[in-house]
Amino acid sequence: MEIRLEELTKIFTDKNGKETRAVDNLSITIPSGKLVGLLGPSGCGKSTTLYMIAGLLKPSGGKIFFGDDDVTKLAPEKRGIGLVFQNYALYPHMTVRQNIMFPLENLNIKREEATKLVEEMAALVGILDQLDKKPSQLSGGQQQRVAIARALVKKPRVLLLDEPLSNLDARLRLQTREEIKRIQRETGITTVFVTHDQEEAMSISDQMVVLDYGVEQQMAVPQEMYNHPANLFVAKFLGNPPINILDGKIEQGNVVLSDNLIVGTSKSPNATVVVGIRPEDFRFDPQGFEVTPDEIEHIGRDTLIYFTLGEKKVRAIVDSDSVYGKTKIKLSVKKDKLHVFNPETGNVVL
């Protein structure tokens, strides 16, 4: 089931009359059967978008389509969605089995069939042996699986997850990440999830959408977005350690940084630009430019080199073997790994 958002907008007015555009003319299409992540910093409108898709918030403008159906005015229970809340929202006074069965009570199916569905779903998420416990007796990860089972049991067209991993500890996060991906693969259901953790989004999404202040920044396959960020915001948001941002200019086809350092080429006309270089895109090059490192850290396989370039501090990660024992540090930027941006708009310059 494909989800299409057309010019979706949400404006919040506080009691003083001030307006905040939480979501601003968002137009994206989420392809059917894919796992898509809505990514962005806090307050960028991703949860708002999710709740509008769910139908719990009414949009101020724009339309939402599930396939060919316009569901913009439809109540949540009629849209055929499953929603997993950030704090799971399980009914505390019901057992796991009753929790999962609750959505089925409103469908016209027999009880035996409902019970079978419940067990099928419990097996899918892996809590078949916890069915008669109450939520308070389960761990966080188990509770989340119950929430997922409850969302999926009515075979919805769309599965929505609100920050599914933020309540879990680090180890559980990795495990659950894989679980979500596996479940989505097995059911083939169109899934949208919201997160502020870029590593998480990059690891499991089929596609990612980055939002900032309600505006879409880029939508692409994760690795594509990482390698070719459409603007400065996306470039800065992805990547750990973060990308190095330096001032520079394009002069006669060369990308020049301060101190007249040439780091690469560009086909664009002369202009003042902002240059982004990821730490791992530096490499040791005897023909490169020499740097005086402020600090060098050897961490096993990688070596971190901190140096200053025209008043900006730069972080570089190079292969340890290549720098080991070398007295002079000479670096260059890997080919095609230069990101050049327009200083006013932030968009990428080719």
């Binding site: 009570e105 469908l107 016209n108 009880r111």
Partner: peptide, 17 residues
């Protein structure tokens, strides 16, 4: 008994819908 209750709930909800 459980089946019956379920049936009743389901039918009533559905007729309402």
């Amino acid at each position: 008994l459980q089946n019956l209750l379920w049936r009743m709930k389901s039918v009533s909800h559905h007729s309402f819908v």
